[in-house]
Structures are given as C-alpha cells and as structure tokens.
Design a protein around this nucleic acid. Structure first.
Length: 303
DNA sequence: TAGCAGGAAAATC
DNA sequence: GATTTTCCTGCT
C-alpha cells in the first residue's frame, strides 16, 4: 500500500533513523526499509512529505505519525532544552531528529541485548532473532520478519538463543521475555505513571519486590524514553558519560576525571545523581537533549 | 562498594 | 593477526 505523510513541523528521517534508538531500519538508496509492528515499510523523505509503502493496511499514515511522534511540537521541545551552547550546537547539527515511539517489548528486548555491544553488533543480534523466531511476511517479493513475541522467546532454550550470537545476553533475554510473557511487566501501567513511578514499576516486577534481571538503570531509562513517553528520562551510556565529562564536568562532580580517562564505572547512586542533575539542567524534555548529545558525541568520535 | 566476569563481533593497532 | 573496545549488569 502506498501513502504519504504531510509533515507539519521539522523532521529529519535520516537523523531519526541514524540516532541509535532504532535498530531495524536500513538505507537502500533513497529509501529506508524497516519493520515496525507487523508490517514492513519503506519510507523516503521528500522535503516536507514522507513517501511510504507498507506491506499491510495496518501501517499507514496514522501509524507513522504515532511511531515518529510527528504530531508533537518539536520546536517547542528544542527551545526548552537549548539551555547552553553545547546542546544548542548539537540541536542545530541534527535538527529534525525526533524520538520515536517504539513497541515497549521490542524496545526492552533490544536494549537488553545492547549491553556491551556496538551498534552493528546489536543490529546483527536483533536481525538474527527476528529471522529465527519472528513471523515472516512478504514485501516486494522479499521475506521480512516481525519482532518475536515475548512468549516465543520465553519458550526458546538458552542454548538456541546463544546460537543467535547473543553470548552471555541469552539467559537475560530469556528471563526478561519470561517476565513479560507472564504478564509481570505492565507496560500500560508504566506508560500511565510519571517518570519516577514508571521507573520503579519497570525495574521491579512487583512493586519493590523482585528485580527484573538484566535490566539496570540505563536500560530502564532507554525503555522509558523510547517507548513509554517519558521524555525526562536521561539514559547515561558510555558516550553520554564522556560527553558530560567533557562539556558538563560539574554534573559529574569529582568522578568526571575518571570517566574522562576512560575508566567508566557508575554506581547506581552515581547514576541517579548524575541523571538527576541532567534532568534538572535540561528540564522535562531532558531525554531529547540526551539523544542530541549522543549523536554529537558519536560524530566527533568518527571524525 | 570495588572488582570482576561475561561472549562475540567490530574497531583499532 | 593480536589487542582493545563495545549504547552494561550481576555477582562476589
């Protein structure tokens, strides 16, 4: 099915898809191919219009508007986070990058796999479990695969998951899948709560009780930010830690030199303190600031 | 709380 | 080729 989406505000498809929040989109010439929900899609941006093809009627204009959060006022967000020269420069460089609204289960599983891996590797691991466990469907005569359900991965053996190249992440993925399949993670509730409450709900299967193993503070913040509308979540990964050490040493306090020297090891207390300081500095859209800083940090490394 | 292991692929030397 | 690094978390 072919359709278009008229853009009603700034949007850069390229910056959004290359920002490291989504792992299932691939550039082929002018088009971006991806899978979202249970549809394959190809999208290209022509100025203020998105030209799209999808494998099913489920993924149309309304779906993409919701997926890329195109109905939200990005300029308002960017104005709110532009508190200093560093972030303002990053915003100008990657203007139009939006945070997408992913499926929470897919997002959770993806970032459990993302620990201690680089982006090409993360993409490979996800592609492999999708090919192996995700329902196939055809698009332009080619097989595409949906993201496997929690139940499917919960039923898989750790040995088989390991064979997908997941390494030590295999048992973590299975445990998380089991929790989700068992209904112990209530994403609707997480989405309805405020940031702090949502974080507690996600990090503990039952309030204050057993921890959701394999999900630490960073992964939890990624899930809250990329799939649960918690725009104040400020995930701190190695890139953000380095960016903060370089440009915002006061947020890190005395630990900043250690991180600058490449010896990153944030305790839970330090993580919460630094993340909180970033939230206070950037405000209620701190998560957008985090993503722009992340892109700027990675680009600097590449050059 | 500090130290370490974890597995495999990518990046770097 | 060997070594280092990699969008981290769990265990001791």
């Amino acid at each position: 099915m072919e359709f278009t989406v008229a853009l009603d505000g700034p949007f850069s498809l390229e910056h959004t898809l290359e920002s490291g929040q989504l792992f299932r989109w691939e550039r082929r010439g002018e088009w971006w191919y991806g899978v979202a929900g249970s549809s394959a899609l190809k999208v290209r941006q022509e100025g203020d219009v998105l030209r799209c093809w999808s494998s099913s009627d489920m993924a149309g204009s309304n779906f993409l508007t919701r997926y890329f959060r195109l109905d939200e006022d990005l300029n308002h967000v960017l104005a709110a986070i532009s508190k200093d020269r560093v972030i303002t420069s990053a915003v100008q460089r990657f203007y139009g990058m939006r945070l997408a609204r992913q499926d929470p289960w897919e997002c959770l599983a993806s970032f459990v796999l993302a620990t201690n891996a680089n982006i090409p590797r993360i993409r490979t691991m996800i592609a492999t479990i999708c090919e192996r466990y995700g329902g196939p469907f055809e698009f332009e005569g080619e097989p595409f695969h949906g993201f496997p359900s929690a139940g499917t991965l919960a039923a898989a053996s750790v040995v088989d998951l390991r064979r997908c190249g997941l390494g030590y992440r295999a048992p973590f993925l299975k445990r998380v899948a089991t929790s989700v399949a068992g209904g112990r993670v209530d994403f609707a509730k997480v989405q309805s709560l405020g940031y702090e409450g949502a974080r507690k709900e996600l990090l503990s299967e039952l309030f204050g009780e057993k921890l959701l193993l394999g999900v630490g503070p960073k992964v939890a913040d990624c899930v809250l930010l990329f799939s649960c509308d918690k725009d104040e979540a400020f995930p701190i990964d190695v890139w953000i830690a380095r960016a903060l050490a370089k440009s915002y040493p006061k947020m890190l306090g005395p630990k900043s030199r250690l991180i600058g020297d490449g010896k990153l090891r944030l305790s839970l207390r330090d993580y919460d303190r630094i993340s909180g300081a970033a939230r206070r500095h950037f405000g209620k859209y701190a998560g957008y600031a985090q993503q722009y800083l992340y892109m700027a940090a990675r680009e600097q490394e590449l050059s």
